[in-house]
Amino acid sequence: MVIDLNKCVGCGACVMACIAENRREQAFKAIAEGLPALENFKKRTYVNTYIVGTYPNVAVYYTHMICQHCENPPCVSVCPTGASFKTKDGIVLVDKTKCIGCEYCVQACPYGARFWDPYLRSIDKCTFCEHRLEKGMDPACVTTCPTGARLFGDLDDPNSAISKLVNSGATTVFKKEEGTKPKVFYILPMRKR
């Protein structure tokens, strides 16, 4: 996945699409519990807003948190039960029947992409909408993004649009020093102050 932060307008469509697609039943439970439960509702992806500068030389940036689907996922190596695993396609998933909720993976993840889901009683995280990929669809967040800030494709195919973009050098990864080799790439916002 590539996230072009120049195109993100911070509208939250991706966050909402993900909740509706992947955490709908939990969402209904939280609604039944009321506003405080909604305030604490965990999201697989979210957008942070950063305000910088002094009037009138200011800028607003958005950053996107989402599981980076690392090639070397620290969450997988620390999992004592094998609940966290990587598929042959490189997607990092949690087998909820094996998860014991020890939260080692939550601690190990440098990106804060995992959380305990009290409704499922398991760790939950982004799956790249694996169930949609199987049907030839894009992840829900990618499909809905009004400005096309999120791009999805096959990095193993050198001719895919996403491979070309990543290989062009326009993208970067977060916390490269961790050696995790993320599969989520970012195009950083150009500073325009």
Binding site: C11, G12, A13, M16, A17, I19, A20, R24, T144, P146
Partner: peptide, 10 residues
């Protein structure tokens, strides 16, 4: 494409 409002409409 739809925004957060459209996504939440259900």
């Amino acid at each position: 494409k739809i925004c957060a409002r459209g996504q939440s409409a259900l």
